[in-house]
Design a protein around this nucleic acid. Sequence first.
RNA 1: UCCCCUUUAGCUCAGUUGGUUAGAGCGGCUGACUGUUAAUCAGUAGGUCCUUGGUUCAAGUCCAAGAAGGGGAGCCA
Length: 477
Amino acid sequence: MKIKEILKSDKYGDQVVVKGWVRTKRTSKNVAFIALNDGSTIHNVQVVVDLNEISEESIAEATTGASVAIEGIMIESPGSGQNVEISAKKVTVLGPADPEVYPLQPKKHSLEFLREKAHLRFRTNTFGAITRVRHAMIYAIHKFFNDKGFYNIHTPIITGSDAEGAGEMFRVTTLELNNLPRKEDGSINFEEDFFGKETNLTVSGQLEAELAALAMGEVYTFGPTFRAENSNTSRHLAEFWMIEPEMAFYDIHDDMDLAEEMLKYLIRYALENCMDDLQFLSKRLQEEEKNKKQEDRAPMELIEKLKFVLENDFERITYTEAIDILRDSKPNKKGKFQFPVDKWGVDMQSEHERYLVEKHFQKPVIVTGYPKEIKAFYMKVNEDNNTVRAMDVLFPGIGEIIGGSQREEKYDVLLKRMEEMSVPAEEMWWYLETRKFGTVPHAGFGLGFERLMLFVTGMGNIRDVIPFPRTPQNAEF
RNA sequence: UCCCCUUUAGCUCAGUUGGUUAGAGCGGCUGACUGUUAAUCAGUAGGUCCUUGGUUCAAGUCCAAGAAGGGGAGCCA
């Protein structure tokens, strides 16, 4: 029986078998207590062992980290702290964990330490909670789209195009690296490679998702994404999961509406289904906050923050309005920004996004209408021929959580944009053909799944919301 | 890739102007305790002071290079 079910039950007297891992064991002369967890919930079940019936020796190996099977009876707990507990009739240690060397102790560990113990950190309260919330969010994403009539599309992980225009790519090859086949001019002959051409891991499924949307109407991808950027921040991974909806007949406003609706749906789902875990994460955060200086502390605790996002409309402004606000802002006038905002056309830096979201509006902000020079070739050019129908959703503490746009559906304009930005049009013939045959206005966006996880769990480092993070110089486990 | 910080016991950290046998709390182990909640109390073991080189009579402490980790920036989701 799962511990989650036992703790909800009041069938005192029922016989149960529980299997799990020991968190702590406390012994006294006549009685021992084992706090047992099986991953089904943040809470442990308390197993009571009468040492007059079961010898202390037989449970000697039931130390922190050991796996055990308990046969016993559910009883109403006389102690405070829990309603139900299990009176053990038989304790079997399935797999001992030598307490001299088992690295997880019944105490707080730093997140940095646990990162080096990623194979065992699932056994901690924090990562158990994160893992359950992560699952709930994965499920909720599929449910959200399914209920709206979207189709899930599996886009390729190995791609032959290097024109997706989103960062450095990981090369995929079966060529022998110590003995590369060369052409006469000395360059590598990729015709001998597995696919007969240069291939990489995908940096986005968007282009393929567009192809599907232009027949299926509303589609989404949810798959692994790879970026070989040498990026060392708490918000970047070399391998992460991205959700990319793509919708025919949507304009930029429909796109924004969907993005806001989806984010709120997911947050609501977490509040309705993961309250135990969120409460634990919130408490954990609040304890961490105590060690911070007053000005660095979060203005709201986790659950309050999630509810706040649910209950308020996202602020929608144009890039031009954003630049005006920033130019007239106190930190800009006082020279507090590392990158001063002086003229229209500059890209917004992290500090500017943070100012807008955390100081000026104090809620999520969607910025649209960026200068076309700083955005991708596929974004629809506005009538002013100066800005594009891009939209970035900015979240407090995280920055850009969603980046999206209405796509350029006009063949001539798209081709011209590709030439301007030196995107090889010949290679992208298939993408262009969708604009040649039955093109329609359409839009889409990309949501970084781990960035969503950062927000929902309140964690500060993206390496702690994915089980096995891949970052520069680190592919352990 | 750039800037800043850190590296001392299993974990979290202290270690004075360079000076003798390097400390604490937690955890482990041993024992005590009539139901505990990260139990409590007593005792006990445990160290390549990140690595290499240098300065010095003497280096955990000063200098140089490197490694690992963290924070921030860029890039982005």
